[in-house]
Amino acid sequence: MIISVASGKGGTGKTTVACNMALSVGYCQFMDYDVEAPNSSFFLKPDIKHIHKVTIKQPYFLRGTGADFSECASFCNYNAVAVVGDDVIFFPELCHGCGGCLLVGPEGAVRENDVVVGEVRNGVASPSIDYYMGDLKPGSMRTISIQGDMDKSLNRDELVIIDCPPGTSCSMVFSVKDCDYCILVTEPTPYGLNDLKLSIEVLESMDKPFGVIINRDGIGDDEVEKFCKNSGIKILAMIPNKREIAEYYSRGDSLIEYDSSWKSRFEEIVKEIEKDIRK
């Protein structure tokens, strides 16, 4: 079973929920898909055993050969290749690595390089967490390439917890596409509510079952709660807004260390989800 932990608004507590759920259950696979800003390692403190580089294919053009690359330029939907006069200009940051320019370009004059866009780290976190974390190289735009590489290690037979990137863009969609259930973490503020609605739109269009965890309960109003109740959306938990919780967090300590009753609460949530999706 795959549970993705997502949120429209950033900084609402995705990683807090995902990490504490993993620590509570104990035996699971943990995937940090927030590869632009992975920070789950602060809380899970994994012992990293393997690191492998993720590469993408990137074309290069043999200039000065008299070859005409204009077919490559007109083929590229992302305008990563420009032909001006008889020169070719390549914009690597726009290239999606589809390889099309090799197919339509002059034979032999377009070649490919492997370019490193980041890495995936794998290890063990206690008590028994199979830990994966993607780390995108700063400046690279190839978020999905890293997540796609991590996808190959997903072990559906066990409980998998995916810590998603914030927002509703491609990288979030990619992180929830295989999940059996999505937990949306939000805060009880107008921003939290607005972005919660956006995430719900995405999940509904993908037919994904979901529930909501309200974090920092007490900082805002009760509009999120009302909205969920009126729309028949399940509120899985409400984590109170407490200075002590923030202090634990800022030290890299978990919520269950602060209050051990959260361990059983998170275990229950997983059981409830399991029951929900078996219905």
């Binding site: 939907n77 305008n79 990563a80 001006v84 726009l94």
Partner: peptide, 14 residues
Amino acid sequence: AMGGAGIQTGQMIA
């Protein structure tokens, strides 16, 4: 264009 509008426009202009 999804991306690279300036690049495509530049080529058209040139």
